[in-house]
Write a protein that binds this DNA or RNA. Structure first.
Length: 420
RNA sequence: GUGAGUGUAGCUCAGCGGCAGAGCAUCUGACUGUGGCUCAGAGGGUCGCGGGUUCAAGCCCCGUCACUCACCCCA
């Protein structure tokens, strides 16, 4: 084999593509009911868009970005996530000059240079939603319940909605100080990574999975206990409204986001039934300072992203029916084949999925093919049918048939009656 | 970046020094004009790649690449 796709990037083709389309369609339907409009963003941006927003010291920026220099000498990057691009676009096009809040969604590929494994690719797809201009925790609750509806409609269950608040620039310094005070005394008992993180990004200590570290940090101060008045009320209000909306959730104070731009609400949806360790199917949070940092007005934002590959893994088992053609037209002889082709053409113009045989083949093998591709009905045009201008339309599943004239109108009507 | 496992037909895999195989899938026929069942046959291979050992290497050895899984981190 001469060419293969690159490591960590994959083709998506039938039958999997049907699951992708189903999930995209369900999402679009629900976004519409919640007033979200689609926005299509470039997959490539100035590197600075990401380094400034995601954070210079995050893993994404430090080692996972597809960054290169273009022919004009600019540093450009394949987007590792969607929010930064969205905010750039939002500010660039003055989208805040529309009734507030503004709600957008997008679907598309993201890129991170990592070692692939189950549920993790280098090119992976996200369905994202972003809301700008809503400060109230009611919006946080609405966004999370919309996410819940999407996942439920797709057919996923056994999901855990985990929620926390990571505070704001007012309360975070006090919390980090408290955390560092607690850890500092026993820093020697933590793993190398944790010791490194202690100075760079102490919140990350809470996410370490090394058993000894988990033990050592037991009893460490929790973020949600050090929230300022505003952040505390926001979290309480979110919990209240989630209960009103009937979304069950758990508070997970150890939830840490891999991006620096989050404030207040952060949440993650985990699959309890996923076999691999990549069990986060969607994640999001509030980013109240980001629009301003991108040179726009001081507007709050909140959003989430669904990991397509991860929900596909879970949804694959519940994939059901795939559609076959409405009618397969068999023909015997050149004149008959020409008739079949013309008929198929007219049927297609009327919205019927019609297939014909393009190669000379025995009726048996044509029937076989009709069966294999899942045709709902079949019609045979031979010498006799051509002469009388009538034929038998046969429903493949039931075996029932009815006589029709060889006109697209009659066939379409008969099809409706015979196979729906 | 670190560690482990696996590379043989389109797919799932067997073969473990001695002619490159099975099941499924595809195509054809048995059955001039009605599919699904059955039977027979056909097509399809750089045994990942390179080197070494051997009279002889999918098989053993070395290297390399790819894939998978896990760690790190994340969607």
């Amino acid at each position: 084999m001469k060419y293969k796709s690159l490591k960590g990037v994959h083709d998506i083709y039938p039958p999997d593509i049907f699951i992708w389309q189903r999930i995209e369609n369900i999402s679009r339907d629900i976004f519409r009911n919640y007033g979200y409009r689609e926005i299509r963003l470039p997959i490539i941006e100035s590197t600075e868009i990401f380094t400034r927003s995601i954070g210079e010291t995050t893993d994404i920026v430090e080692k996972e970005m597809y960054t290169f220099t273009d022919k004009g000498g600019r540093s450009v990057t394949l987007r590792p996530e969607g929010t930064a691009s969205f905010i750039r676009s939002y500010v660039e096009h003055y989208l805040y000059n529309e009734p507030s809040p503004q709600k957008f969604y997008y679907m598309g590929p993201m890129f991170r240079y990592e070692r692939p494994q189950s549920g993790r690719q280098r090119q992976f797809y996200q369905i994202g939603a972003e809301v700008i201009g809503a400060e109230s925790a009611m919006m946080d609750a609405e966004v999370i319940s919309m996410l819940s509806l999407i996942l439920e409609r797709i057919g996923l269950d056994n999901l855990s909605f985990e929620i926390t608040s990571i505070g704001c620039p007012d309360c975070r310094p006090a919390y980090t100080a408290a955390l560092k005070d607690y850890i500092r005394e026993k820093i020697e008992s933590f793993c190398d990574d944790c010791r490194r993180r202690f100075d760079i990004n102490p919140l990350r200590l809470l996410d370490c999975k090394v058993p000894s570290c988990i033990k050592e940090r037991e009893g460490s101060p929790a973020v949600i206990e050090h929230l300022c008045g505003g952040c505390g009320e926001h979290l309480e209000s979110l919990k209240h409204h989630l209960r009103i909306l009937g979304v069950s959730f758990v508070i997970n104070p150890a939830l840490v986001r891999g991006l620096d731009y989050y404030t207040k609400t952060a949440f993650e949806v985990k699959s309890m039934s996923s076999s691999g360790s990549q069990n986060a199917v969607a994640a999001g949070g509030r980013y109240d300072r980001m629009v301003k940092e991108f040179g726009g007005p001081d507007l709050p934002g909140i959003g989430f992203a669904i990991g397509m590959e991860r929900i596909i893994q879970l949804a694959r088992s519940l994939n059901d029916e795939f559609e076959g053609p409405d009618i397969f037209i068999c023909s015997l002889g050149d004149d008959e084949s020409a008739k079949a082709l013309g008929l198929a053409n007219r049927l297609r113009q009327k919205g019927v999925w019609a297939e014909v045989s393009h190669d000379k083949a025995s009726l048996r093998s044509q029937m076989n093919r009709a069966n294999r591709i899942g045709a709902k009905s079949v019609i045979v045009i031979g010498e006799n049918e051509l002469k009388c201008n009538t034929a038998k339309l046969k429903a493949m599943k039931s075996g029932e048939s009815s006589d029709v004239s060889l006109s697209a109108d009659d066939i379409a009507t008969a099809l409706n009656k015979l196979v729906g």
